[in-house]
């Protein structure tokens, strides 16, 4: 494993550029439109899982309500583009900001809570958002939802075809990774990680935990909102039941399986879960049974997920306290 990591470090830039180039070419190489649509789903959920990972994996707060922030992003986009004709690209940051504000609202009561209390509050908040979406008819269309959300224009191309919409998701995904990488290496990121590992110790060292925890929630919510905004025109029709707790648990499953506490984890998780979902569609309920078994197995064998941060509290009670060399000491965020 460390040989792979060493190799990765040496040739980092070239490897990432090669992957990026391959991803750009993908929709033109793959012929079946359905598969391009699956690729879009993978990218979409990779970023959404990434946003959840920014909260769960880095500040250690276990948020279960990502579906709520996702919903806000989607509805903001839908409402403003269908009612007021606002440009999609402008709406991306706007949705993010809206979602971040709600994130702050959710964070405030949770600051003094931890563990299960916090998780339940996030879940409750997500459900309240969904129920409001379902009942606030004049704004959200209620049970009817909002339909005919216009497709955005990308460099002069109408993104109605999945293979053009793909690039919107790719763009957002790459942006997310670049920004998050930066943030994690900064003071803010280090503060988050310290809170995750041991909140009391962090506080005693002068880290303003409340401030950073709220910031963390807002950050995760912001990106979930952006993804939601991108999601709305893609499915062309949104309605409250698409943002239920099941969606939230789905995203959670992705980071549990793929890995928490690293940037690669959610991407891997999104790939695995989406591929399993689509290829095993014919199995109906057995599909979920398989997920559930995988989640439980993950908890038993590797709690931080496949590509998760092994040198952290996420890895469970099996942290090895042997002295680590400088090279591998940093958790690669």
């Amino acid at each position: 494993m460390s040989k792979v990591q060493a190799f990765y470090h040496k040739h980092r830039t070239i490897l990432l550029l090669a992957v990026f180039a391959a991803l750009c070419v993908l929709p033109f190489v793959v012929t079946k439109a359905l598969f391009v649509r699956y690729a879009c789903n993978i990218l979409l959920f990779a970023t959404l899982a990434g946003s959840l990972n920014a909260i769960n994996g880095y500040s250690g707060q276990m948020c279960l309500g990502q579906a709520g922030f996702f919903a806000i992003g989607a509805y903001v986009c839908a409402i403003f583009s269908t009612r007021f004709g606002v440009n999609f690209w402008l709406l991306l940051p706007i949705s993010g900001v809206f979602a971040a504000m709600v994130g702050l609202l959710v964070a405030l009561p949770t600051l003094k809570l931890q563990g299960i209390y916090l998780s339940i509050v996030t879940l409750g908040a997500s459900e309240i958002i969904r129920i409001i979406a379902q009942t606030w008819e004049p704004v959200t269309g209620g049970a009817l939802g909002i339909k005919n959300i216009p497709y955005p224009w990308l460099f002069g191309l109408d993104t109605f075809r999945p293979k053009y919409y793909y690039f919107i998701f790719l763009l957002i995904g790459v942006l997310f990774l670049l920004v998050t990488n930066r943030v994690l290496k900064s003071r803010v990121g280090r503060a988050w990680i310290s809170i995750r590992e041991d909140q009391i110790a962090a506080k005693s060292l002068g880290v303003q935990t409340s401030f950073y925890k709220s910031l963390n929630f807002m950050y995760g919510a912001f990106w979930a909102g952006v993804v939601g905004c991108a999601y709305a025109p893609f499915v062309n029709y949104i309605e409250a039941s698409q943002f239920s707790t099941d969606t939230g648990f789905n995203v959670l499953a992705m980071i549990v399986i793929g890995g928490q506490g690293t940037l690669l984890g959610p991407i891997l998780g999104s790939m695995i879960v989406t591929v399993l979902t689509e290829s095993l569609r014919f199995l109906d309920n057995w599909r979920y049974v398989i997920y559930a078994v995988i989640i439980i197995m993950m908890m038993w064998l590797r709690p931080q997920g496949i590509a998760g941060a092994s040198h952290s509290v996420l890895a469970g009670g099996k942290i090895k306290r042997k002295p680590v060399r400088r090279e591998g000491a940093r958790s690669h965020g």
Partner: peptide, 28 residues
């Protein structure tokens, strides 16, 4: 049983997985 001394969130995630498992098994 396994997670008595582990961080809390692990057992919690396990129960989430278990609930998904039971719900779908019953539906099947």
């Amino acid at each position: 049983e396994r997670f008595f001394n582990a961080p809390r969130h692990i057992a919690l995630l396990c129960t989430i997985g278990f609930s998904m498992l039971m719900k779908n098994l019953v539906q099947i």
